[in-house]
Nucleic acid binder design. Sequence first.
DNA 1: GACGTCCTAAACAGTT
DNA 2: GAACTGTTTAGGACGT
Length: 681
Amino acid sequence: MAYRPEHSTDRWGESERETRGGGLNSREQPRACNLSISPGKRLETRQHAHTLAVNASLSLSLSLSAPLALSPSPLRDSCLLIFRDPPNGPASLCLPCQPNGVCQVPVSVAMMTPQVITPQQMQQILQHQVLSPQQLQLLLQQQQALMLQQQQLQEFYKKQQEQLHLQLIQQQHGSKQQSKEVSAQQLAFQQQLLQVQQLQQQHLLSLQRQGLLSIQPNQTLPLHSLTQGMIPAELQQLWKEVTNSHVKEENSATNNGHRGLDLSSPSPVPPKNHNQHGSTNGQYISHSLKREGSTLDDHSPHSHPLYGHGVCKWPGCEAVFEDFQSFLKHLNNEHALDDRSTAQCRVQMQVVQQLELQLAKDKERLQAMMTHLHVKSTEPKPAPQPLNLVSNVTLSKTAPEASPPLSLPQTPTTPTAPLTPLSQTHSVITPTSLHSVGPMRRRYSDKYNMPISPDIVQNKEFYMNAEVRPPFTYASLIRQAILESPERQLTLNEIYNWFTRMFAYFRRNAATWKNAVRHNLSLHKCFVRVENVKGAVWTVDELEFQKRRPQKISGSPALVKNIHTTLGYGPALSAAFQASMAENNIPLYTTASIGSPTLNSLASAIREEMNGAMDHGNSNGSDSSPGRSPLPAMHHISVKEEPLDPEEHEGPLSLVTTANHSPDFDHNRDYEDDHVHEDML
DNA sequence: GACGTCCTAAACAGTT
DNA sequence: GAACTGTTTAGGACGT
């Protein structure tokens, strides 16, 4: 009775203040986004580019999101990071990434940057440079590492050459065109190598400028040792495939695709600071790399993007390991640089490219939608800031997967909830952003019949950590909780747990929202109580859920279409994949517009998918697992307070009979008792 | 203004 | 008896 709108408003305002003050503008800004990696390509990711960056782990582009644990790989020390703070400020180097850590630069990048220092050069350095012991040690490490690296590359090249030789023998009868292609490929490869050499020279030049290396201008750099005779077409093609797309991206994105190090301004930071975290850049580095799921942090050395929950996440591997070390061993042994891994990388690259393509399309579509909606909305509401969480999700994918326990202090500044300022992310506003604004929240999920799952998925980290009320109705949330469960049924307590697990907001005021949950469960026909031996679980009658509201969007075919195309979600897919591949015709359990015959059939499909198995389950009188039957036990379904004896009726009325009701009839019955029950009684 | 929906609050009954 | 679960009612806010 004592509903106080001002109270509600205050709470919202508070949440938004918390969100914006502590989250969006927080110091938890992913400053790592401004990190540049060199040599070769000065590649910078910014906040809005994380989504792509995370997928570009094999590209020449910066791919901090997919660090490869190379320890004790020699590649580790061969990467050179350039840090800028501010982003346009002078560069400072970090060499190597981390003395005892793991390189953040993917193999493809690290391999491009061999810093071969001859003994003569080393001697020169010793003679002419006053270097600290640390620097000397670093250089020695580099030298050793690079020699090892060279050996590896030579072995690799040898293999490739043998393969190529075999291939050439097989293809000797091939046409001239093929040989022409091979020649062209060789040419291209030579160009690539030339670029690499240039990059390496630039790299060394940068070293020189940093005072770490002193080389006479006319001195021949010993870089050719790497590439001596390396013209196998196979390797070339491989290289091309791995690098081409992203080189193109860079070339198109920048006027100079081979800028290499930006040495226009020599770093004012003396080399002695390179490994110190006390400096600004040091903090930057540490912070940045940590935020990218790095294993550099000595306190959390067991995080790796290819390792989660004790399972190797290498595509198709799924090997289980008891500890991180064994995983690393496995990674280095089983997923070393060989043909198989390369092929898998290729596949992954294609997947990534497809996703990127899809993402680009979706972004474009979203932009169009936003533009369209903005044109219509005459009053821009200034106060609430939409939250861009797309990149956050992407980031979170690379972060340790340990979800924050419920007992954690939930502040918007929690590192697991990185927030991106709106000002930088206009182009990627999630659908929620439009609706998480003030009192509109509760209409979000239903008004346009938009599925809430992608939003929840995308903003999961945020909702889990920020005490911001989710812009969904209780009914939508309950439905989501149930549908997310493997068996699509939850007990009340499990629903509670889902709420508290997924939303920090629901970790307080439990009495209020729990009451609301119960109220909604009981009130809405779409929630069906299924009695078990152990108790009762709640399931969702999807059709009923869809009938809850008449759709007013029929007049906007474009919107309908857009909604329709974003309906596809499969529980087996990962969250990010769901978000980006929503329209890939994956079976869904979500809302559909009732008015459209197409969507009606879609809804029928949903119903069949949800209940079709139940037909088989109906004959299964003895449930081997009574507590958690994957099929909602029809014979135990009780619709609200009137349990029916399934023996006396042909089937559960709620799921079958209501499917034939017209929406116009049904959507008004949400609050009313099912008179069918009375008929049947 | 009517209507529908959502939210909050509360009372009540049954079950654990 | 307390806590939990489930149902129902009531009233206000808000959008259509």
